[in-house]
Amino acid sequence: VGNARFEHHVEKAYYDTDLRATEAVVGLYDQGVMVTKIQKAFSVGAFGVEKNRRLVPTRWSITAVDDIVSKNLAETVKTFSEINEYRVYESVYLDNVFEILMIPGGWSYESMEAWYPGTVWNPHGRNTAIYSDYEGNNGRTAYAQIGGCYYSARLAVCEQLIKERRQATVVVLREARPGYIMPIGVWQVRENVRNAMRNVPYKYNTLNEALSRISSRLEIPLKRWINQGSLLKNILYQRRITDYFKKNPTPPN
Rank of each mutant, 00 (worst) to 15 (best):
N253K: 06
S108Q: 15
I146W: 14
T250H: 10
P252D: 12
L222A: 06
R53S: 08
N138P: 05
P252F: 09
A144S: 03
A196D: 08
I83H: 05
S70T: 03
A24Y: 11
Y151W: 06
R194A: 05
T169F: 12
P183D: 07
N72S: 14
P183F: 03
P117L: 04
V69K: 06
R54K: 12
Q145W: 09
L173K: 02
Q228L: 14
I83N: 04
Y14T: 01
N3F: 09
S215T: 00
H8C: 05
L155I: 04
Q238F: 12
L161Y: 02
V157A: 08
V157W: 09
K78Y: 03
D67G: 07
V189R: 05
E135N: 02
E159G: 02
Q145R: 11
P249T: 12
S81H: 13
T76K: 15
R213Q: 14
R217D: 00
N248Q: 08
D133N: 04
F47W: 08
M34E: 14
E23C: 11
G185H: 03
L55A: 10
K163C: 11
R177K: 04
Y180E: 00
G139W: 06
M112R: 03
Q188T: 13
Q167P: 01
P104W: 12
Y131R: 09
V171S: 10
R140E: 07
G229P: 01
R194K: 06
T250V: 14
R20M: 13
V44S: 05
D243M: 05
R87Q: 15
Y134E: 01
E110P: 00
A46S: 13
N192A: 15
S43Y: 11
I214Y: 15
N227H: 05
I220Q: 04
E99M: 14
T250N: 13
A210K: 00
R239F: 03
L101A: 03
T58A: 14
G105D: 01
L28S: 04
M34K: 15
N195Q: 12
L94S: 15
V172K: 06
K78Q: 08
E99F: 08
Y109R: 01
E11H: 13
S43K: 12
V49E: 13
V171H: 10
I100A: 02
S212C: 01
N205F: 09
L101Y: 01
V33H: 12
F47R: 02
I146N: 09
V120T: 14
P123A: 12
N234H: 10
S152G: 15
A74H: 08
I62G: 04
T169I: 13
F245Y: 11
K203W: 02
I83M: 04
M34H: 14
T63G: 09
L73K: 07
A24Q: 08
V44M: 10
S230D: 12
A21N: 07
E82V: 11
Y15K: 09
N52P: 05
I220G: 05
K163N: 11
W115V: 00
